[in-house]
Protein backbone atom coordinates (compact mmCIF):
# COMPACT_ATOMS: atom_id res chain seq x y z
CA UNK A 1 0.00 0.00 0.00
CA UNK A 2 1.31 3.44 -0.89
CA UNK A 3 2.18 5.58 2.11
CA UNK A 4 -0.40 8.31 2.62
CA UNK A 5 1.23 11.73 2.60
CA UNK A 6 1.24 13.50 5.95
CA UNK A 7 0.77 17.27 5.56
CA UNK A 8 3.81 19.54 5.60
CA UNK A 9 4.02 22.48 8.04
CA UNK A 10 6.29 25.48 8.28
CA UNK A 11 7.62 26.34 11.72
CA UNK A 12 8.27 29.84 13.03
CA UNK A 13 9.93 30.48 16.37
CA UNK A 14 10.30 33.52 18.56
CA UNK A 15 13.70 33.04 20.09
CA UNK A 16 13.56 35.84 22.64
CA UNK A 17 10.99 38.23 23.98
CA UNK A 18 10.69 41.22 21.75
CA UNK A 19 11.83 39.45 18.61
CA UNK A 20 9.59 38.44 15.73
CA UNK A 21 8.86 34.83 14.88
CA UNK A 22 11.38 33.57 12.37
CA UNK A 23 11.09 30.67 9.97
CA UNK A 24 13.23 27.78 11.23
CA UNK A 25 12.17 24.79 9.18
CA UNK A 26 9.45 22.32 8.33
CA UNK A 27 7.94 19.11 9.60
CA UNK A 28 5.19 16.60 8.88
CA UNK A 29 2.14 16.21 11.09
CA UNK A 30 -1.42 15.05 10.68
CA UNK A 31 -3.07 18.08 12.32
CA UNK A 32 -2.38 21.40 14.07
CA UNK A 33 -2.00 19.98 17.57
CA UNK A 34 0.48 17.36 16.45
CA UNK A 35 2.33 19.91 14.34
CA UNK A 36 2.78 22.19 17.34
CA UNK A 37 4.01 19.32 19.51
CA UNK A 38 6.40 18.14 16.84
CA UNK A 39 7.71 21.67 16.35
CA UNK A 40 8.46 21.86 20.05
CA UNK A 41 10.16 18.47 20.03
CA UNK A 42 12.23 19.14 16.91
CA UNK A 43 13.07 22.81 16.91
CA UNK A 44 13.39 23.86 20.56
CA UNK A 45 15.63 21.14 21.99
CA UNK A 46 18.41 23.57 22.79
CA UNK A 47 16.31 26.30 24.31
CA UNK A 48 15.84 28.05 20.98
CA UNK A 49 12.35 29.33 21.57
CA UNK A 50 9.71 31.01 23.69
CA UNK A 51 6.86 30.83 21.22
CA UNK A 52 6.02 28.70 18.20
CA UNK A 53 3.81 29.19 15.17
CA UNK A 54 3.01 26.36 12.80
CA UNK A 55 1.42 27.05 9.44
CA UNK A 56 0.35 24.51 6.84
CA UNK A 57 2.84 24.91 4.00
CA UNK A 58 -0.08 24.84 1.59
CA UNK A 59 -1.47 28.00 3.23
CA UNK A 60 1.51 30.08 2.16
CA UNK A 61 1.19 32.18 -0.96
CA UNK A 62 4.57 33.10 -2.34
CA UNK A 63 5.57 35.75 -4.85
CA UNK A 64 6.76 34.42 -8.18
CA UNK A 65 10.52 34.73 -8.63
CA UNK A 66 9.91 35.37 -12.33
CA UNK A 67 8.15 38.59 -11.36
CA UNK A 68 11.01 39.78 -9.22
CA UNK A 69 11.66 42.73 -11.50
CA UNK A 70 8.11 44.03 -11.41
CA UNK A 71 7.69 43.30 -7.73
CA UNK A 72 10.87 44.63 -6.19
CA UNK A 73 12.92 46.72 -8.55
CA UNK A 74 10.64 49.78 -8.54
CA UNK A 75 11.51 50.27 -4.85
CA UNK A 76 15.20 50.46 -5.59
CA UNK A 77 14.99 53.90 -7.20
CA UNK A 78 13.18 55.53 -4.28
CA UNK A 79 16.34 56.52 -2.52
CA UNK A 80 14.60 59.48 -0.89
CA UNK A 81 12.95 56.98 1.45
CA UNK A 82 16.27 56.43 3.18
CA UNK A 83 17.80 58.79 5.75
CA UNK A 84 21.14 58.89 3.97
CA UNK A 85 19.45 60.72 1.07
CA UNK A 86 19.26 63.89 3.14
CA UNK A 87 22.16 66.11 4.08
CA UNK A 88 22.23 67.54 7.56
CA UNK A 89 25.32 69.43 8.76
CA UNK A 90 27.36 67.50 11.28
CA UNK A 91 27.07 70.30 13.86
CA UNK A 92 23.37 69.55 14.16
CA UNK A 93 24.27 66.23 15.67
CA UNK A 94 22.66 62.85 15.39
CA UNK A 95 19.18 62.94 13.98
Amino acid sequence: MATPNTPLWEVFIRSRNGLAHKHVGSLHASDTTMALQAARDIYTRRGEGLSIWVVPSSAITASDPAEKGMMFEPAESKIYRHPTFYEVPEEVGHM
Binding site: T3, T6, S26, H28
Partner: peptide, 23 residues
Protein backbone atom coordinates in the same frame (compact mmCIF):
# COMPACT_ATOMS: atom_id res chain seq x y z
CA UNK B 1 17.07 11.99 13.33
CA UNK B 2 16.49 15.72 13.44
CA UNK B 3 19.12 16.20 10.76
CA UNK B 4 17.46 13.61 8.56
CA UNK B 5 14.23 15.44 9.07
CA UNK B 6 15.68 18.85 8.14
CA UNK B 7 17.23 17.32 5.06
CA UNK B 8 14.06 15.60 3.89
CA UNK B 9 12.37 18.97 4.23
CA UNK B 10 15.11 20.60 2.14
CA UNK B 11 14.69 17.89 -0.52
CA UNK B 12 10.94 18.40 -0.46
CA UNK B 13 11.37 22.01 -1.56
CA UNK B 14 12.55 20.54 -4.87
CA UNK B 15 9.22 18.86 -5.45
CA UNK B 16 9.52 15.33 -4.08
CA UNK B 17 7.53 14.32 -0.99
CA UNK B 18 9.19 12.77 2.02
CA UNK B 19 7.07 9.67 1.48
CA UNK B 20 8.34 9.24 -2.08
CA UNK B 21 11.93 9.69 -0.96
CA UNK B 22 11.56 7.24 1.91
CA UNK B 23 9.75 4.73 -0.28
Amino acid sequence: CGHGLYLYAAAETLGASREELVD
